[in-house]
Design a protein around this nucleic acid. Structure first.
Length: 428
DNA sequence: ACCCGAATGATAGAACGTCT
DNA sequence: AGACGTTCTATCATTCGGGT
């Protein structure tokens, strides 16, 4: 219930810090919240970027921490990386969540689902959105973008592309090139997915996987079966420099832009530890429990382009983060639609997009479809010239997300089922 | 002809959300 | 509170493809 509050995501989850700063040094007034958070994170044993270096406690590491904190506060105040703000049709006071508020409303229950999927398959949807529904196009203009709902509530964020991703090294190759290689290495190492697994993915027919911890229909959190089946490859992937750097970047950006949502993840870990569930309490991907690579399938799907869907199992008032990699014409291909917000968002490789994926029907769409559909000779899109099954060649993505069941367990202390049983039978 | 492991298929079960 | 549908996991039997 408490999560269905008609409040901005950043406030809806705001709750008193469980742990009062117990050390006298931390009780001073005027301590920046970000520093307090860092201290709390340290107390909880997180492997934050900060304490990796501050273990040594030398002067340099302190300077590094301070610079990082200064940078974060400047970003927050708008002195650096100021975000352009876009007001949209979204309404966060009335989000498409389930009644309990934990997760998102299933795609199949959404009124337009059937027609939408059909129009997407027919490649008519772009024209419909632009011409009939007056969707807003959000082009990439090299600055960060903050998306506000109709009430001014921030509900999504698109980063700019940081220089370190695109600066060529001595061989003329960039971080983005190397990251792509790491993803392709992993896809190759794990091998092709079974047809049944591809079939089961309602997002598209590209290669995908989910690693990390979940509790879907399990009593206790555990690694996903894919993670267990490809443990070594996954361990190796997480050691790779570009993947490791992205995980840090995604998490620190999340903490900077959505501090109280990041805090809710930290609280989740703390509570799971208090419940003696320490084994899988720590998110393996910074502030995210799950990580997913979407990529091509050799000879079958050339690149990733997802059809209309909702990630309903994810925590409703939480962000998932999509990172786009690969090489394709991002001005014409694979823009991201947030249906209920009436947005079509350009996502070049290197940007990071945060949004609540359980609340918004989302999918990729090609602005170039406009040309196909409006050809004067009356030619129709055909499977030959426009099969969505082939996807967008050269495009891949990586998704960070948090599933509702982990937070149910942490915040209620048990599964929803057990919690109900306890409330209803106080007699015994 | 025989054996073994991998892939595939069938079935049961758990958890959650929804409806009555 | 109970029935039902959906989604995902676990388990076991069967089939398939090599290899000896």
């Amino acid at each position: 219930m408490e999560h269905t509050d008609a409040a901005p995501p950043d406030q809806a989850t705001e709750r008193p810090m469980k742990r009062q700063a117990s050390h006298s040094s931390a009780t001073r007034d005027g301590v920046r919240p970000d520093l307090k958070r860092a201290a709390a994170a340290d107390d909880q044993g997180y492997k934050t970027h900060g304490n990796m270096y501050s273990d040594g406690k030398n002067k340099k590491s302190r300077q590094r921490d301070r610079r990082r904190a200064d940078n974060a506060s400047k970003i927050r105040s708008g002195d650096r990386h100021k975000a352009e703000q876009v007001v949209t049709a979204a309404d966060m006071t009335n989000p498409c969540s389930t009644k309990t508020g934990w997760s998102g409303m299933d795609y199949k229950r959404r009124p337009e689902a059937k027609q939408l999927t059909q129009d997407w398959l027919d490649r008519k949807i772009y024209k419909i959105m632009v011409d009939d529904y007056e969707f807003t196009l959000v082009r990439y203009e090299r600055s960060p973008t903050l998306l506000l709902d109709r009430n001014g509530v921030a509900f999504a964020f698109r980063s700019n592309i940081p220089d370190w991703m695109t600066t060529p090294d001595e061989n003329g190759r960039t971080w983005l090139d190397h990251f792509e290689e790491e993803c392709m290495w992993y896809i190759d190492k794990c091998g092709p997915r079974k047809d049944a697994d591809i079939e089961a993915n309602n997002r598209g027919d590209h290669w995908y996987m989910v690693v990390g911890v979940d509790r879907q229909n399990k009593k206790s959190p555990d690694l996903t079966s894919f993670h267990k089946a490809h443990r070594q490859a996954t361990d190796e992937l997480l050691q790779k420099p570009c993947t490791a750097r992205l995980i840090k970047f995604v998490s620190t950006t999340f903490e900077t832009r959505f501090p109280s949502l990041a805090q809710r993840v930290s609280d989740c870990e703390t509570k799971l530890r208090e419940q003696d569930r320490g084994e899988h309490a720590t998110p393996l991907f910074g502030k995210f429990y799950n990580y997913c690579i979407n990529g091509p399938r050799k000879g079958v799907v050339d690149g990733v382009s997802t059809g209309p869907h909702v990630d309903g199992k994810n925590l409703a008032l939480m962000m998932c983060a999509v990172f786009v990699w690969g090489k394709f014409d991002h001005t014409e291909k694979a823009w991201l639609v947030l249906w209920e917000a009436k947005l079509i968002i350009e996502l070049p490789p290197g940007v990071l997009m945060y949004y609540p994926s359980s609340l918004f029907t989302h999918f990729n769409v090609d602005p170039s479809d406009l040309k196909i559909v409006t050809t004067s000779d009356g030619s129709r899109p055909t499977p030959e010239n426009s099969s969505p099954l082939k996807g967008v060649p050269g495009r891949g993505s990586v998704v960070f997300f948090n599933q509702a069941t982990m937070f149910q367990l942490a915040e209620k202390g048990s599964s929803v089922k057990d919690a109900r049983a306890r409330v209803i039978s106080p007699v015994a």
